[in-house]
Design a protein around this nucleic acid. Structure first.
Length: 665
RNA sequence: GCGCCCAUAGCUCAGCUGGAUAGAGCAUCGGACUUCUAAUCCGACGGUCGGAGGUUCGAAUCCUCCUGGGCGUGCCA
């Protein structure tokens, strides 16, 4: 049930039959101008096409045009008599029996009146795509949660969805682990308990590399600060010498140099603390000294792997499954899965050919020793092979696209990737267009950065990223505190046992994190504030989950099952007796609108808004419309039906967001 | 330098294919519990939608310029 679409069709018919039909060039667009009424006193929906339409019809005025279309439109079954108001708005109020008829139909429809799309598309969604062997951090949450929600939602709408986790399983991090294993690893320990041991090795190598990098960066940073200070003074001097706009410009330049200086100073502080961590530990200090050229050694291990070195290949094959176990633990917890997990390594054998093809077609040329594709619309080329012969992620992405076209021939490919990579995707899409690599619509579903409470990209004090798992643990723990508050659950019968408490807090804690992420528009940066997410009040997952949990509880208190409600509805029918009932009923019917708008700009926050709105309508209904004490049997039946349907839509809506519900909390 | 993005209530954010009086959560203040679960509901307070022009019957929304911020920018991904 997509009410605006339905109304729009009726208006399109009416305009087409009107005397001025031939003066209108785009009936569909005009008739599509249906909006939810801005103010309840104007009804439920409003049609805004009369003003622009009147402009196309010479000698007409909007109010008359509106009235003529209204007179022709077949709306009797749907709306009360429409009213033309203001400059030419058409106000529409749905008939109560239209609403109740739909509620009855909804009770028998597991899809909650959401239609299957007319023309299903095959859509491939590339999301999550972490580097394995590196610990996952908050940065991974957005792509994973947004991608999963899009996959669920579009699939439910009737599209054919293929999800693919484009794992980073072939990069430097394996060189690091291999190096770590060869120098610090104990084969027995690794064999016995591989996952924590491998991540320990990764962290050790990472720390040693950071140490040497920090040591060598200090003089560079000092020198940088010197140079910048000189530049700054010069800029200020020049500002003195000139006047007006030029002086302002120079002062601004000096300001921006000041910021760079501050940045360098911060870099020095960070480097110093990295160095201190090692220097203060004699054992680490001696390790660092022994492995002074660790960075180049790691790169060597990586390129040996890529070149097919037996030993490294064998180690990679040994380690990879364990690295996958590691990330799968997080996916299990987030309840996320993929149809395919084709990592970078999968495409490695195709890269040579990818480059050769582009060279043969004359699109790729050598420049400064690297193989580049130059594009008119960009200053910098897309580099597909480095001077040292290594391939880059651009190469892999091209090979991946070719494979996806041949294997799946999708209508659309969505890349759920950080906005900072937008230029890469623009280039990738441009090359795809140039080479006619695919007929699919390519979309970079970009998203903003997760910021800390200071408004900067989220980091811990030491500069390392907060681990994703500890974050999930914190959220679950916070939820546990509230779930297990004895004062709250004292009345639950039977009492909540330990297992249920744990399960409920897991569901609520994880839901809190997902909901907080999805509730922001994907393109905006947002501040990650755990205390706010697990506050469990206001616009949070908990609010929706809580309102869901009340629905089975109400049925239980009334001593009825869903089946009983069906029966009663069939016998007595429905009647709307209270505005809160009507508001809730209308909200239930708007589910499909919410799903459509998620697809329109790949924006899950529209579904979050809907779920919140529905939960809110239900909360209001709940305080104003008592089921057990309903004034009549018919009214009670109606309210029971609303409770059943609200429970279903809330559960389904949350499920599409990737969030679970519990039966009581 | 060039390119992309952003600026809305004290704070965090919605709203942006132009529509009637710009919304929510948090915070603050005041009300409602012998609860079909108060993790709730009701009310109050709170805005030059960064600034200036322009297009339009109508602009937070579209265009231009300005200011302030973020990100990217030839061999990481």
């Amino acid at each position: 049930m997509h009410i605006p679409q339905l109304l729009s069709q009726r208006f399109a018919d009416a305009i087409a039959r009107s005397p001025f039909a031939d003066q209108v060039d785009d009936i569909q667009r005009l008739a599509g101008m249906i909006r939810i009424a801005g103010n309840p006193k104007f009804g439920d929906y409003q049609a805004n096409f009369a003003m622009p339409l009147s402009k196309m019809v010479s000698g007409s005025n909007p109010r008359d045009v509106a009235q003529q279309v209204v007179d022709l439109a077949d709306l009797d079954q749907i709306c009360e008599a429409p009213e033309v108001a203001g400059p030419g708005f058409i106000n529409l109020k749905l008939r109560d029996d239209f609403i109740t008829n739909n509620l009855v139909a909804m009770l028998d429809d597991p899809r909650c009146l959401v239609g299957q799309v007319d023309s299903p598309k095959k859509i491939l969604i590339d999301y999550s795509s972490p580097n394995v062997a590196k610990p996952m951090h908050v940065g991974h949450i957005r792509t994973t949660v947004i991608g999963h929600c899009l996959a669920q939602t579009l699939a439910f709408m009737g599209h054919e969805i293929i999800t693919d986790n484009h794992l980073g399983d072939w990069g430097t991090q394996f060189g690091m682990i291999i190096y770590g294993y060869k120098h610090f690893g104990d084969p027995n320990v690794v064999a016995a308990d591989p996952v924590p041991e491998l991540s320990k090795l990764y962290r050790l190598v990472h720390q040693l590399m950071s140490y040497h990098k920090a040591v060598s960066s200090l003089p560079k940073l000092d020198h940088q600060i010197e140079t910048l200070s000189l530049q700054r003074e010069e800029a200020l001097k020049e500002a003195e010498a000139v006047e007006g706009k030029e002086a302002k410009k120079k002062r601004k330049l000096a300001d921006s140099i000041s910021k760079k200086i501050a940045g360098s100073k911060e870099g020095i502080e960070k480097a110093k603390s990295t160095i201190k961590a090692i220097d203060s530990d004699p054992e680490m200090k001696s390790l660092a000294e022994k492995h002074s050229s660790i960075a180049t050694a790691v790169l060597e291990e990586t390129s040996k792997l890529h070149a097919g070195d037996e030993e490294n290949k064998q180690l990679w094959e040994q380690f990879l499954p364990h690295c996958k176990d590691e990330i799968n633990r997080v996916y299990n917890r987030l309840n996320v899965s993929f149809d395919h997990t084709l990592g970078e390594s999968f495409y490695h054998p195709m890269l040579r050919k990818t480059v050769d093809d582009l060279r043969e077609r004359g699109l790729a040329t050598e420049s400064d020793g690297a193989i580049c594709v130059f594009l008119d619309q960009f200053d910098a080329p897309m580099i597909i092979q480095k001077r040292d012969g290594a391939f880059l992620y651009a190469t892999t992405d091209l090979a991946t696209l070719k494979y996806r076209e041949e294997e799946f021939s999708p209508d659309e490919i969505l890349y759920v990737v950080d906005a900072r990579q937008s230029e890469h995707f623009e280039k990738l899409f441009a090359v795809a267009e140039l080479t006619k690599l695919t007929t699919a619509k390519l979309v970079h579903v970009s998203f903003g950065t997760v910021l800390g409470e200071d408004g900067k990209p989220i980091k811990t004090r030491s500069g390392t990223l907060i681990g994703l798992e500890s974050l999930l643990d914190d959220a679950v723990e916070a939820a546990y505190q509230v779930v297990c508050d004895p004062d709250r659950i004292v009345n639950l019968e039977p009492p909540m046992g330990d297992d249920e408490k744990r399960q409920v807090s897991e569901t609520i804690g994880i839901g809190a994190i997902k909901y907080a992420d999805l509730s922001h528009h994907r393109t905006s940066d947002y501040q990650f504030k755990l205390s706010k997410m697990v506050a469990l009040s206001g616009n949070t997952a908990t609010y929706a989950q809580y309102n869901y949990a009340r629905t089975p509880s109400i049925l239980q208190r009334n001593g009825v099952t869903e089946k009983d409600v069906h029966q009663r509805v069939a016998e007595s029918g429905l009647i709307l007796s209270h505005p809160a009932e009507r508001d809730l009923a209308l909200m239930l019917m708007r589910f499909e609108e919410a799903l459509s708008s998620v697809y329109d700009d790949y924006a899950p926050n529209h579904l979050v808004d809907y779920v919140y709105g529905l939960a809110e309508s239900f909360a209001k209904f709940n305080t104003q419309c008592h089921v057990l004490r309903a004034e009549s049997n018919e009214i009670q039946t109606t309210r029971l039906a609303l409770v059943v349907l609200t429970g279903r839509v809330l559960q389904l809506g949350l499920r599409l967001l990737g969030i679970d519900v519990v039966e009581r909390m």
